[in-house]
Design a protein around this nucleic acid. Structure first.
Lengths: 338, 338
DNA sequence: TTGAAAGCGTTACCAC
DNA sequence: GTGGTAACGCTTTCAA
């Protein structure tokens, strides 16, 4: 059916290897024959067979992206990381395939198969809750892997991570400096590096400010799904005897929800309540100007560059830490009416 | 590095073909040798090379899923279709890879490459706005393809689609029957089959009820991103001189948004406003009981089964139409206080 | 039941 | 420049 190198070679009256070279733009081929070959190939709609190419060359020209579940891609946290990855992989003509990290019915998680069956040349792992033992397997194989936003002691895999702790500390300190004493904190999934770092940063600031950490003012949940739920929590909190005067939100969804709630409830920001909001880009916040800028896109770019260096055999930096910025201008520019 | 069939064969003292058969559970192999081979393979951590296997067998054991952009997966419309696909593909030990349908910098969209380079055995196309010319290419190649929720005249590709038109007509008729005259309609992206079918159904009902279709009461937008935006529209509409008394929402996001808005604004449903809401499952509506049940998961299941039949060479039904159900019980159970 | 050998469609090396 | 020809790691006849 489909044209092969041989088909093209025969029709063009040249050898298979000539066609192979010509079509891949190698220099050791005559100008005239190349033209002829190109023409025949186009006419026959020739396409190289990906499996054959991978088998012969040892490279799949594909990198794997590992996330927990596929619908996590919806979250703009993942979405913007991904757009960074896609940008770099496109530039380098590398394909992208996605693997779920959950084990499902097989013993082995899908991403381990991707590596062991040589379906990809390298991979980027964005899921933050993969058991260390699985990650170690990859390290043992010396398979090119880059972890994003993870911090696992005793594991020697390259990492690209964002310094959430510092920016969280800055934001919390700022709110405290404005006089806030009751600050609600919305973060993501407990146990993840991102969550741990954020809470750590907040606690540092609270400690310095002489504040205790009030668990009743902490809201957690799946990053991508916090918008709807956040409404209820804001409403509930504001009805208590001692309502929070400021909100510190570490997910896009929560940031958007708190801002939207305030607007709907007629609360002025920051006169009535302060909002220090996380922002990683994405479609849900076109109408909001948050105070954090979190370089998730950049994290994607860097992780993809890193994994491609690894694939090319170039040893690279093993840990890249990206700084987020906090610029109190929109949601918490001045002191709330305390 | 990695173990191959030959490595295993040598160590087990048998032939390469014996190992191949044993590991794939073929029956023409001795019980004892099989045990021996299994043991050696496990010890060596042998994994078949995917490219080699695909090249030799002619099958990649992978099917491609085509969507417009990767972050569309976030939408529970896609998400639930996908869960149906994943369920069936998992059962049949088929891998899944995702392709974007947008052309990007290359002339050819990624999904055409997937087919022409034989990266997948078949594919399911969920994007509804792919130019017919590209789809025709696949049809010409006789490549196993199934379209989901599409209706393209003059194209002979198998389709699985949901009958949005009928359920839209039912819902609109019901609202009209309750006495509503001003009904706001929230649908998805203009031009898509889903949108066209829904509007068509609504117009039929409006026509029968002697109502005109008021464009100012129509809200459109990206399916997955309608939650946040919907708030503003509801608010705006309810402030007009002649506000709508009912809402007919065809995306999960809009349904959730209208319900949440009503709750927050202190509007009783259905006493103050009626809401006829679309629901395809998904995480954002745990607190809402909508009136539509749309079999998107089922559509995923059926499309995957269909594509696998096609791959296996079994000719199958070329069009499967799934019915959605409308059960006025929650959001529009009784007449609004007109 | 077992094994030898011929592909599968490329790439890459090595003569010419 | 160009063309033969071994790999690449697997599946699949076909004999034994």
């Amino acid at each position: 059916m489909a044209a092969t190198l041989e088909t093209v070679a025969k029709k063009a009256g040249v050898s298979v290897s000539a066609v192979s070279k010509a079509l891949r733009g190698r220099s050791n081929i005559g100008e005239a024959t190349k033209r002829k070959i190109d023409q025949v190939a186009r006419q026959l709609r020739y396409r190289p067979n990906a499996s054959a190419r991978a088998l012969a060359s040892g490279r799949t020209e594909t990198i794997g992206v590992v996330i927990r579940e596929l619908n996590y891609l919806s979250d703009s946290y993942f979405g913007t990381i991904l757009s960074g990855i896609a940008k770099v992989s496109d530039q380098n003509d590398m394909g992208l395939i996605f693997g779920r990290s959950l084990p499902e019915k097989r013993q082995e998680p899908e991403f381990l198969r991707m590596a062991m069956e040589a379906r990809v040349d390298g991979m980027i792992i964005i899921d933050q809750v993969i058991p260390k033992k699985h990650l170690s397997r990859l390290a043992d194989m010396r398979f090119p892997v880059v972890l994003v936003d993870q911090q696992i002691p005793g594991l020697s895999l390259p990492v690209v991570r964002i310094n959430y702790q510092k920016v969280a500390r800055q934001a919390a300190s700022h709110l405290i400096g404005l006089g806030h004493r009751r600050i609600a904190v919305f973060s993501g999934v407990q146990g993840k590096y991102k969550f741990r770092a954020e809470i750590e940063g907040v606690k540092e600031a609270f400690g310095r400010g002489g504040l205790g950490f009030d668990e009743t003012l902490l809201v957690t949940g799946e990053d991508g799904f916090m918008y709807a739920g956040a409404y209820q929590h804001v409403e509930r909190m504001l009805r208590t005897a001692e309502p929070p005067t400021a909100f510190l939100t570490f997910t896009n969804g929560a940031t958007a929800a708190v801002h939207h709630y305030a607007r709907l409830a007629g609360l002025r920001v920051p006169e009535d309540i302060s909002i220090a909001g996380f922002y990683s880009g994405g479609p849900e916040m076109t109408d909001i100007r948050p105070d954090f800028q979190v370089p998730t896109h950049e994290a994607g770019v860097r992780s993809c560059q890193l994994v491609m260096d690894l694939v090319a055999g170039q040893v690279s930096t093993s840990e890249i830490v990206l700084e987020a910025s906090f610029d109190p201008r929109n949601g918490c520019g001045r002191s709330a009416g305390l």
